[in-house]
């Protein structure tokens, strides 16, 4: 297909963020890249249904999310382990300085229900408005707001518990965090 280069550039410009979202959904870089590729194939095949001037990122994110969800339903066994696999990606990161706190955050994020994690990422990391995030997830704006709030509260609880009550092997790091920064 011969596509308006401006549209093509909008598609390409969305790819990095689309990949980050795909990784956060699938917890696996290879699978995320497959998902992105399939999303792009589908999007380009139906590019006529994209209205120029509307939100290209939101359109592509919606396609990717729908693909992921339908695949998710098909592979139910894998689905149940989705959060586990998300946590599994933590292990690929060596515990370098600065990584410990980061991994603690990822582990906490992995404990969130997937709908809350997804809402938090769309709003807090991808930078979508509540309205766009609601359109992407096919739910009401109020639902997105409440998911984001619950996600923030739960993360805050998880990280606070880790820092105040949990005196595991990592407490030097936790003490630094509890002390309010790196000294």
């Amino acid at each position: 297909m011969k596509l308006d280069p401006a549209i093509r550039d909008q598609v390409l410009a969305t790819v990095p963020s689309l990949r980050a979202f795909a990784i956060s959904l699938s917890g696996n870089v290879d699978r995320a890249d497959d998902l992105v590729q399939e999303t792009l194939l589908r999007a380009l095949a139906h590019i006529d249904s994209f209205q120029p001037g509307t939100n290209m990122p939101a359109w592509l994110f919606t396609i990717l999310r729908n693909l992921f969800r339908s695949e998710y339903r098909k592979r139910r066994r894998e689905v149940e382990d989705a959060d586990g696999r998300f946590a599994e990606t933590l292990k690929s990161h060596p515990e370098q300085t600065g990584r410990v706190e980061f991994n603690e955050f990822r582990a906490a994020l992995a404990k969130l229900p997937s709908d809350q994690r997804e809402a938090l990422i769309l709003v807090g990391a991808s930078g979508f408005s509540y309205e766009d995030a609601a359109a992407i997830c096919g739910c009401a704006v109020g639902t997105i707001k409440s998911r984001v709030n619950r996600a923030r509260t739960r993360l805050s609880d998880l990280l606070a518990i880790d820092n105040v009550d949990d005196f595991g092997p990592d407490r030097a790091t936790r003490a630094v965090l509890a002390g309010g920064g790196r000294n």
Partner: peptide, 23 residues
């Protein structure tokens, strides 16, 4: 503090991938 960090960490994690650009 953690609330502020959540935002930072979330964007840090996400941007780590975004900064890889288009494969």
């Amino acid at each position: 503090e953690i609330q502020a960090r959540i935002g930072q960490q979330l964007r840090g994690m996400y941007d780590e991938v975004v900064n890889q650009g288009v494969p």
